[in-house]
């Protein structure tokens, strides 16, 4: 043990027998001194690469390597934001688009969750609707826009319905597989210890299927954001999809890129939210993965 301490093993390094410790340490685990030195350039690299890319991008614009029609430079995109902000489109777009995406995600995701849980638990339910759902899943929802106009009109309903359609399947599939992936032996535990079906679902099934369920919601959130572009083709006067569609109609490449960057930012937000959720909902996994 003393040998280890003098070598400066970082806390938490698993130590087995002292005899093997020395070789193990030299081979795999960097000393505490090197760790700090290494982490700095890594962080720098992380920031440096995108920065260099943006610089190169701006340079190619300034030096006219590519026409601004093909790829407008970063400054042009900043200008596009300024323009959208001045008119008020950007401020109007975010709340309305997020509300559409959020409502659709909530309804679609909940429906997918319920369908997935029921199909995961009941073979009868699975036989009843899994095949039709699998068929529906493969339909590109963008192709459904005209039909949704016929079915749901041109108001908010059709837009939200489209997003519901986009977000229902990721949650359904991942929930279903999450539950089916649970070891049957654990369900037997519930039976031998006289747990009711509901208690088994609450204490065993849902917690263990939660990682899959969260993956489903993560995908669904992405699908809901993408669904906005299709949904906001239908009679919209505001929204990120509306901005993109109008820009496409009037050849504003800079605004299209600006809109895409908004999507990227939203995707990042979704990722952060889901990571936080995972930390809150899956503490038992966090310990396992060592954060």
């Amino acid at each position: 043990m003393t040998a280890l301490e003098t070598l400066g093993a970082p806390a938490g390094v698993p130590v087995a027998a002292p005899t093997t410790t020395h070789t193990y340490e030299r081979a795999g685990v960097p000393g505490s001194g090197t760790t700090r030195v290494r982490r700095v350039p890594q962080l720098l690299l992380r920031v440096l690469a995108p920065l260099a890319l943006i610089g190169l991008w701006q340079l190619s614009d300034t030096l006219d390597w590519v026409s601004p029609q093909v790829l407008p430079g970063p400054m042009a995109i900043l200008d596009a934001y300024r323009e959208l902000w001045a008119v008020g489109d950007l401020q109007a777009a975010l709340p309305i688009s997020l509300q559409r995406a959020g409502t659709g995600l909530l309804v679609g995701g909940t429906a997918g969750l319920v369908l997935g849980v029921v199909a995961g638990l009941s073979v009868t339910a699975e036989r009843f609707y899994d095949a039709p759902l699998q068929m529906l899943r493969t339909i590109p929802f963008i192709a459904l826009v005209p039909l949704f106009v016929v079915w749901f009109g041109i108001g908010e309903t059709s837009k939200v319905a489209l997003i519901i359609g986009a977000s229902i399947f990721p949650v359904y599939l991942n929930t279903y597989h999450g539950i089916r992936g649970i070891d049957r032996k654990l369900l037997e535990v519930g039976r031998t210890f006289d747990m009711s079906r509901w208690e088994t679902i609450r204490l065993v099934v849902v917690p263990l299927a939660m990682p899959g369920i969260l993956v489903g919601w993560r995908y669904a959130a992405g699908a809901a954001l993408l669904g906005l572009v299709a949904a906001e083709q239908i009679n919209s006067q505001a929204g990120i999809g509306y901005i993109l569609n109008t820009a496409n109609q009037f050849q504003r490449t800079d605004i299209i890129l600006a809109g895409i960057l908004v999507y990227a930012a939203l995707g990042l937000v979704v990722d952060v939210v889901m990571r936080t959720l995972e930390h809150v909902l899956l503490p038992w996994r966090a310990t396992h993965d060592g954060r």
Partner: peptide
């Protein structure tokens, strides 16, 4: 369990139904 499935299923249908009505331009 059967009751649970039935009620969950009904909820889903209800949600789908809710989203289906309304919306048409008056």
């Amino acid at each position: 369990m059967r009751k649970l499935i039935a009620s969950l299923f009904a909820t889903t249908l209800l949600a789908a139904g809710l989203s289906a009505c309304g919306g048409d331009a008056d």
